[in-house]
Deep mutational scan, measured.
Amino acid sequence: IDAAQIVDEALEQGITLFVVNNRLQYETSRDSIPTELLNKWKQHKQELIDFLNQLD
């Protein structure tokens, strides 16, 4: 699994991931984030931050 897949998966569930001051953040209108997704974010945090920083 790679960062792009995780970002896409989040988007499919209505969650936008982004980076502020090198910290992973998210925006969503959902009430809660699925635990499975949160765990993936934690496991791949640095990859996600690097990936999202490249997009900007």
Rank of each mutant, 00 (worst) to 15 (best):
L17R: 00
H44Y: 15
D31T: 07
D8V: 14
N22K: 05
S32G: 08
Q25C: 14
L52A: 00
L24A: 00
L24E: 01
Y26W: 15
I15L: 02
K42D: 14
E47Y: 07
L11H: 08
T16V: 14
A3T: 06
L11R: 15
T28S: 10
Q43T: 11
L11G: 06
W41A: 03
D56Q: 14
L38P: 02
F51S: 01
L37F: 07
S29V: 09
D2R: 13
N39P: 02
Q13W: 13
L38W: 10
Q54L: 11
I33W: 03
A10F: 05
E9M: 05
I49H: 02
Q13L: 15
Q43S: 10
D56M: 10
A10Q: 01
A3N: 02
V7N: 03
V7T: 03
R23P: 01
L55K: 14
R23V: 15
Q46E: 10
Y26T: 03
L37N: 02
F18A: 07
K45W: 15
Q13R: 07
A3I: 14
A10R: 01
Y26G: 02
L52T: 00
L17W: 02
D31Q: 08
Q5P: 04
L11Q: 09
H44T: 04
A3Q: 03
Q13E: 08
Q25F: 15
I49W: 03
I6V: 07
N22W: 04
V7S: 01
Q5D: 10
E12L: 10
E36Y: 13
L55E: 08
L24K: 00
L24Q: 01
S32P: 15
P34V: 03
R23S: 15
I33F: 05
T16S: 08
F51A: 02
I15R: 00
I15C: 03
Q43E: 13
S32E: 12
I33T: 03
K42E: 15
W41F: 11
E12T: 12
I1V: 12
R30C: 06
Q43M: 12
E12W: 07
I6C: 04
H44I: 05
S32T: 13
S29M: 09
T35H: 11
I6Q: 02
R23G: 10
E12S: 14
D50H: 11
E27L: 13
L38T: 06
N53Y: 07
V7K: 02
D50E: 11
N22A: 06
N21Y: 05
G14W: 04
R23F: 12
T16R: 15
D31N: 07
S29C: 07
V19M: 04
I49P: 00
A10D: 01
Q25A: 11
L48E: 00
G14C: 05
H44G: 03
D8R: 14
L17S: 02
N39V: 11
F51Q: 02
S29R: 08
A3S: 05
L11E: 08
V20Y: 11
N39Q: 12
T35V: 13
K45Y: 15
Q25G: 10
Y26L: 04
I1E: 10
V19G: 01
K45T: 14
F51Y: 14
P34A: 05
N21T: 04
I15G: 00
I6R: 01
L24T: 00
V20G: 05
I15T: 02
D2H: 11
Q46K: 11
L38Y: 08
R23Q: 15
D50S: 11
V7L: 08
Y26E: 01
Q25Y: 15
S32I: 10
V20F: 11
H44K: 04
T28P: 09
L17G: 00
Q5T: 10
N53G: 09
Q25M: 15
R30W: 06
S32W: 11
K40W: 05
L24R: 00
L17C: 03
T35A: 12
D2G: 10
Q13F: 15
D2S: 14
V20L: 11
L11Y: 09
L55P: 09
L24Y: 02
D31C: 07
K40L: 13
I33K: 01
L38I: 12
N39S: 08
Y26V: 06
Q25H: 15
V19N: 02
E27S: 13
D56K: 07
T35R: 11
E27W: 12
K45S: 15
I1D: 07
Q46T: 09
N21P: 01
D31G: 07
L48N: 00
N53Q: 10
K40F: 09
E47N: 06
N39T: 11
V19W: 02
R30Y: 06
L37A: 02
Q13G: 06
N39E: 15
Y26S: 02
T16M: 12
Q43N: 11
H44E: 01
Q54W: 12
E9P: 00
L24S: 02
D8L: 15
D8S: 15
E9A: 04
Q13T: 04
L37Q: 03
P34D: 06
F18C: 09
V7C: 04
S32N: 10
E27P: 01
Q5A: 13
D56R: 04
I1K: 08
Q25N: 10
S32A: 10
I15N: 01
K40S: 04
Q13M: 14
L24W: 01
A3G: 04
V20T: 11
L17T: 00
F51I: 03
F18W: 09
N39D: 15
D8P: 01
A10S: 05
R30G: 08
N39Y: 09
D8H: 15
F51L: 04
D56V: 09
I15E: 00
L37T: 04
F18G: 06
L11W: 10
Q5H: 08
Q54I: 09
D31W: 04
Q5G: 12
E9H: 05
N53S: 12
S29F: 09
E36Q: 09
E9F: 05
S32Y: 13
I49A: 02
T16I: 13
D31L: 07
W41R: 00
E9K: 03
A10G: 03
T28M: 04
Q54P: 07
D56A: 14
A3M: 15
D50Y: 09
D8Y: 15
